[in-house]
Amino acid sequence: AVTGSQTALLLRAFEKDRFPGIAAREELARETGLPESRIQIWFQNRR
C-alpha cells in the first residue's frame, strides 16, 4: 500500500506534470521506494 508521505510526494509531482516521462517516474520511484511500474499505474489511475 502507498503510505501518506508517498501519496503526498506523488500528489505534488502530479500537480506539476500529469504525464511524467520515464525519467521523472524513475526519480519518483527512487524517492518513494515504490517500483516505477507502480508509479505509472498511480498516475494513470489519478488522471
Rank of each mutant, 00 (worst) to 15 (best):
A1Q: 14
A1R: 11
A1E: 15
A1S: 13
A1N: 13
A1I: 14
A1M: 14
A1G: 12
A1L: 12
A1H: 10
A1F: 14
A1T: 14
A1C: 15
V2C: 03
V2T: 06
V2K: 04
V2F: 13
V2D: 05
V2I: 14
V2A: 06
V2E: 09
V2H: 04
V2R: 04
T3N: 09
T3L: 05
T3W: 06
T3M: 09
T3R: 05
T3S: 12
T3D: 08
T3C: 08
T3Q: 07
T3F: 07
T3E: 05
G4F: 13
G4H: 14
G4T: 11
G4S: 14
G4Y: 13
G4A: 15
G4W: 13
G4L: 14
S5N: 13
S5W: 15
S5H: 13
S5G: 07
S5D: 15
S5C: 15
S5K: 13
Q6T: 08
Q6R: 07
Q6L: 08
Q6F: 07
Q6N: 10
Q6C: 12
T7M: 15
T7K: 14
T7E: 15
T7C: 14
T7Q: 13
T7S: 11
T7A: 10
T7W: 14
T7V: 12
T7D: 14
T7P: 02
T7Y: 15
A8M: 13
A8H: 08
A8Y: 10
A8R: 11
A8T: 10
A8C: 14
A8L: 10
A8P: 02
A8E: 11
A8F: 08
A8Q: 13
A8I: 14
A8K: 13
L9F: 11
L9E: 03
L9S: 07
L9Y: 10
L9R: 07
L9W: 07
L9I: 15
L9N: 03
L9M: 11
L9V: 14
L9D: 03
L9G: 03
L9P: 03
L10P: 00
L10F: 01
L10V: 02
L10N: 00
L10H: 00
L10I: 01
L10K: 01
L10Q: 00
L10C: 03
L10D: 02
L11K: 07
L11E: 15
L11R: 06
L11Y: 05
L11Q: 07
L11A: 05
L11F: 05
L11M: 15
L11T: 12
R12T: 06
R12K: 14
R12Q: 11
R12E: 08
R12N: 10
R12G: 05
R12W: 08
A13R: 02
A13S: 07
A13H: 11
F14M: 04
F14A: 00
F14H: 02
F14P: 01
F14C: 03
F14Q: 02
F14T: 02
E15N: 11
E15Y: 08
E15L: 11
E15T: 08
E15S: 07
E15K: 12
E15P: 00
E15W: 09
E15R: 07
E15M: 13
K16Y: 06
K16S: 08
K16I: 10
K16Q: 11
K16F: 10
K16N: 10
K16V: 06
K16E: 09
K16C: 03
D17F: 05
D17M: 06
D17I: 03
D17C: 15
D17V: 04
D17Y: 05
D17A: 05
D17W: 08
R18A: 12
R18V: 04
R18C: 14
R18E: 12
R18I: 03
R18Y: 04
R18Q: 13
F19P: 04
F19S: 05
F19Y: 09
F19V: 04
F19K: 04
F19I: 04
F19L: 04
F19H: 07
P20V: 03
P20W: 02
P20Q: 01
P20E: 01
P20N: 01
P20I: 04
P20F: 03
G21R: 04
G21E: 07
G21F: 03
G21H: 06
G21V: 03
G21D: 13
G21T: 09
G21C: 03
G21S: 14
G21Q: 05
I22W: 10
I22A: 11
I22Y: 12
I22S: 06
I22H: 11
I22P: 11
A23E: 14
A23C: 15
A23Q: 09
A23W: 09
A23V: 09
A23K: 14
A23L: 11
A23S: 10
A23H: 11
A23N: 11
A24Q: 13
A24D: 09
A24P: 03
A24S: 06
A24T: 08
R25D: 03
R25C: 12
R25V: 15
R25F: 06
R25S: 03
R25E: 02
R25M: 15
R25I: 15
R25L: 15
R25Q: 06
R25G: 02
E26W: 10
E26L: 12
E26V: 12
E26D: 06
E26N: 13
E26C: 15
E26G: 06
E26F: 09
E26P: 01
E27S: 06
E27R: 15
E27V: 13
E27Q: 11
E27D: 12
E27N: 10
E27C: 00
E27W: 10
E27I: 09
E27Y: 10
E27G: 05
E27P: 00
E27F: 07
L28E: 02
L28N: 00
L28R: 00
L28Q: 00
L28I: 05
L28F: 02
L28K: 00
L28H: 00
L28G: 00
L28T: 01
L28A: 00
A29R: 02
A29N: 02
A29P: 00
A29H: 03
A29K: 03
R30P: 00
R30N: 06
R30L: 09
R30Q: 10
R30I: 07
R30S: 05
R30H: 06
R30G: 04
R30F: 07
R30T: 05
E31K: 11
E31H: 08
E31A: 09
E31G: 03
E31N: 08
E31P: 00
E31R: 10
E31T: 12
E31S: 08
E31W: 11
T32D: 03
T32K: 00
T32Y: 01
T32H: 00
G33K: 05
G33N: 06
G33Q: 04
G33V: 02
G33P: 00
G33F: 02
G33M: 04
G33H: 04
G33W: 01
L34R: 02
L34I: 09
L34K: 00
L34G: 00
L34C: 02
L34A: 01
L34M: 07
L34Y: 03
L34N: 00
L34S: 00
P35Q: 07
P35A: 10
P35I: 05
P35R: 05
P35W: 03
P35K: 07
P35L: 07
P35G: 04
P35F: 03
E36A: 09
E36H: 07
E36C: 07
E36W: 04
E36V: 06
E36S: 08
E36R: 03
E36M: 13
E36F: 06
S37I: 13
S37W: 15
S37M: 11
S37T: 12
S37E: 14
S37P: 08
S37F: 08
R38A: 14
R38F: 15
R38M: 15
R38G: 06
R38Y: 15
R38W: 15
R38E: 14
R38T: 15
I39R: 00
I39D: 02
I39T: 01
I39F: 01
I39N: 01
Q40M: 11
Q40I: 12
Q40W: 08
Q40D: 14
Q40K: 12
Q40G: 07
Q40T: 09
Q40P: 01
Q40A: 15
I41F: 10
I41P: 01
I41L: 13
I41S: 10
I41E: 14
W42Y: 01
W42K: 02
W42R: 02
W42N: 02
W42L: 02
W42A: 01
W42F: 03
W42M: 02
F43K: 00
F43Y: 04
F43L: 03
F43I: 01
F43N: 01
F43A: 00
F43S: 00
F43H: 01
Q44M: 08
Q44A: 10
Q44S: 09
Q44I: 12
Q44L: 07
Q44W: 08
Q44G: 05
Q44H: 12
Q44R: 11
N45F: 07
N45D: 09
N45M: 11
N45Q: 11
N45E: 14
N45S: 08
N45I: 08
N45P: 04
R46G: 04
R46P: 02
R46V: 06
R46Y: 12
R46S: 06
R46T: 07
R46F: 09
R46A: 11
R47Y: 06
R47W: 07
R47D: 05
R47I: 07
R47G: 04
R47K: 03
R47N: 12
R47C: 06
